[in-house]
């Protein structure tokens, strides 16, 4: 909460270095557990004031990545550097006291609110934990002013989460995330559970508070239209690996990785004429199981440009002249046209 004066817009706030995380699943007395590689060798950085979108399909590890950054899940390899400090090495009180700086907004707004607490208690909870210097009256005052900023009426303070609609519940979740004055917020599918009209309200609210408070956002979603709408840069994950990382417009206008392109063209466009003209770069098959991943490039089983070496050598994440990162052997040869 101490607003370190040194941080300027554009400074590196968070750096993820070679992060890997696997889960052991199954396994019993006589069965060996199998290893699910959720994230492998993830490196990227987030600059102050930007919004980084993380997209991918189910099982790509995007939610795990968000939780690893927040240290809700501990990664076994790699580092998460917050202003140069390795969060993975912090434990107990040291980590707890930093939590005011890194906050989170979850997908299911109702599931993320404790059903036995009133709205006021829920929003005040981080203050109770991290600002012992505030008394109850000061907390209440801050909660009320935060509620009004989120479009929640003050009379709602004594009500319980189940009395709210999804959109209102998400406003409560956002208020709770903002109450400690964080620098970075991880938004994990914040609008996926909401109706279209409410989704737009929440997206606008997020953009507005980001601009007003100079927040940095990590915006995780499976919905590429939504990600494009809010993000400055976008990171595309496939089976736990980065396949492409680029500026938002560049990514949408000229995707370099065949998967990015397929993903972009698959998004249904709410425009009948365009929908009819579009040629979808149809991917065959489905995402392989993260337990038995293909050798070499993990995308090769669905890639129509795959050749021999794709099965043998895993493509490294290369830096292109325009600064974007791509993990594909053939990006130079492939002329991938823009999104729609």
């Amino acid at each position: 909460m101490s607003n370190e004066p040194g941080i300027q817009r554009g400074d590196e706030l968070l750096r993820v270095e070679k992060l890997s995380k696997s889960f052991m699943i199954g396994g019993g007395l006589f069965r060996k557990p199998v290893e699910l590689k959720a994230l492998q060798d993830i490196s990227f950085s987030v600059r102050a004031g930007e919004t980084l979108g993380i997209v991918g399909e189910s099982g790509c590890g995007k939610s795990t990545l968000g939780r690893c950054i927040l240290q809700l899940i501990r990664a076994e390899e790699g580092q998460v550097l917050w202003l140069g400090r390795d969060l993975g090495k912090l434990a107990g009180e040291d980590l707890r006291l930093l939590r005011g700086d890194l906050q989170v907004i979850f997908q299911d707004p109702l599931a993320s609110l404790n059903p036995r607490m009133t709205v006021g208690e829920i929003i005040a909870e981080p203050l109770r934990a991290l600002r012992p210097d505030l008394d109850a009256a000061e907390r209440r005052e801050r909660v009320l002013s935060m509620m009004s900023g989120m479009g929640l009426r003050p009379e709602m303070i004594n009500r319980y989460p189940h009395e709210f609609s999804g959109g209102q519940a998400q406003r409560i979740g956002i208020a709770r995330a903002l109450i400690t004055g964080p620098k970075l917020i991880v938004c994990d599918e914040p609008v996926s559970a909401l109706d279209v009209s409410i989704q737009a309200q929440i997206l606008n609210l997020l953009s507005e508070i980001r601009d007003r408070m100079g927040l940095t956002l990590i915006f995780i979603s499976h919905n590429l239209s939504v990600v494009r709408h809010v993000s400055d840069r976008i990171l595309v994950l496939y089976l736990g690996r980065i396949v492409e990382l680029a500026d938002s417009d560049a990514l949408y206008d000229s995707p370099q990785h065949p998967y990015t392109r397929a993903l972009l063209t698959a998004v249904p466009v709410p425009d009948p004429k365009k929908a009819r003209q579009r040629n979808i770069d149809g991917l065959t098959g489905e995402i392989p199981s993260p337990i038995n991943q293909p050798s070499g490039c993990t995308f090769r089983t669905r890639c129509r440009f795959a050749e021999d070496r794709c099965g043998k050598v895993r493509p490294a994440l290369e830096t292109l002249p325009d600064g974007r990162l791509v993990a594909c052997h053939r990006w130079r040869e492939l002329e991938l046209a823009g999104g729609a």
Partner: peptide
């Protein structure tokens, strides 16, 4: 593993 518990941890609760 419910989200509200994760939210509490992320909110700095002991």
């Amino acid at each position: 593993n419910r989200e509200f518990v994760e939210a509490a941890i992320a909110g700095g609760a002991k």
